[in-house]
Measured scan of single mutants.
Amino acid sequence: GIPATNLSRVAGLEKQLAIELKVKQGAENMIQTYSNGSTKDRKLLLTAQQMLQDSKTKIDIIRMQLRRALQ
C-alpha cells in the first residue's frame, strides 16, 4: 500500500491541482475575451497568455509529484 504520509501529500497535491486547473480555465477564458478586443486589450491578452503558460507548467509539475507520491 501507500504510506499515510504520502496519502496526505496526495490530498494536498490534488487540492493544488484543482486550483491550478481553475486558474488555467480562467486564463483561457481571458484569452478568448481579449483576443478579439482592441489594442488596449493587448497587454491583458499577453498577461493572460503568460498566466496560462505558468499554469500549464505548474499542472505538469503537480502531476509529476502526484505520480511519484503514488508509486
Rank of each mutant, 00 (worst) to 15 (best):
L17E: 00
Q71R: 09
E20G: 01
N29V: 11
Q71I: 13
D41S: 04
Q32P: 01
Q49W: 14
A4N: 13
N36W: 05
K15D: 05
S38K: 09
G12W: 15
D54S: 08
K56G: 02
Q32W: 10
L52V: 03
R67N: 05
R68A: 13
Y34F: 07
E28H: 04
V10F: 03
L17W: 02
G1T: 11
L45T: 01
L70K: 11
I19Y: 10
S8L: 09
Q16C: 13
Q65R: 06
G37Q: 06
S38V: 09
L52G: 01
S8M: 07
D54N: 09
S38G: 11
K22R: 10
R68V: 13
L17F: 01
T5W: 10
N29I: 13
L70S: 05
T33N: 11
K56A: 05
A11S: 06
Y34M: 07
Q49T: 06
A11Q: 10
L45Q: 02
Q71M: 11
K22I: 08
D60A: 15
A11R: 11
S38E: 13
P3V: 07
T39I: 08
V23N: 14
G37E: 08
I19Q: 10
S55Y: 01
K24D: 00
T39H: 08
A11V: 07
K24E: 02
R67E: 06
V23L: 09
G37C: 13
K24F: 09
R63N: 06
K24C: 13
T33K: 15
Q50W: 05
T47W: 13
I31Y: 02
R67A: 10
M64W: 10
M30W: 05
K58M: 05
G1F: 09
G1R: 09
Y34A: 06
Q71A: 11
I61T: 08
N29F: 12
N6D: 10
S55H: 01
L66M: 03
I62Q: 00
G12C: 15
L45H: 02
G37L: 04
L21F: 04
S35P: 02
G12P: 03
L66R: 01
A69P: 02
G26V: 15
E20C: 14
Q25C: 10
R9W: 13
M64I: 07
N36F: 07
A4P: 08
L7E: 13
Q49G: 02
I61P: 00
I61D: 09
Q53H: 10
Q32K: 15
R68M: 13
R9K: 11
R63Y: 11
K43W: 07
R68Y: 11
Q50S: 06
Q71P: 03
L21E: 04
Q32E: 12
S38N: 09
L45K: 02
D54K: 11
I31N: 01
I61Q: 09
A69L: 15
I31L: 05
S8I: 09
V10W: 02
K43M: 09
M51R: 05
A18W: 07
R63L: 12
M64E: 12
A18I: 07
D41R: 03
L46S: 05
P3Q: 06
T33P: 01
L7T: 09
N29T: 10
L17N: 00
I61V: 06
L44R: 07
D41T: 03
L44Q: 07
L46N: 04
E14N: 09
I31R: 01
Q65P: 00
A27N: 02
M64F: 07
N6A: 08
G12Y: 15
K15W: 07
K40Y: 13
I19H: 12
Q71K: 07
T33I: 15
K40F: 13
N36R: 07
R42Q: 13
N29G: 06
L52N: 00
L7S: 08
Q65D: 04
M51D: 03
T47S: 12
I59H: 00
R63F: 08
N6W: 03
A11H: 06
L46T: 05
S8A: 13
Y34W: 04
I31M: 04
R67P: 01
T57D: 11
M64A: 11
D60H: 14
M51I: 11
L13H: 01
Q32H: 10
N6E: 11
R9G: 06
K40I: 10
R42N: 12
T47R: 14
T33L: 15
Q16T: 03
A48K: 01
T5G: 12
G1E: 11
D60L: 14
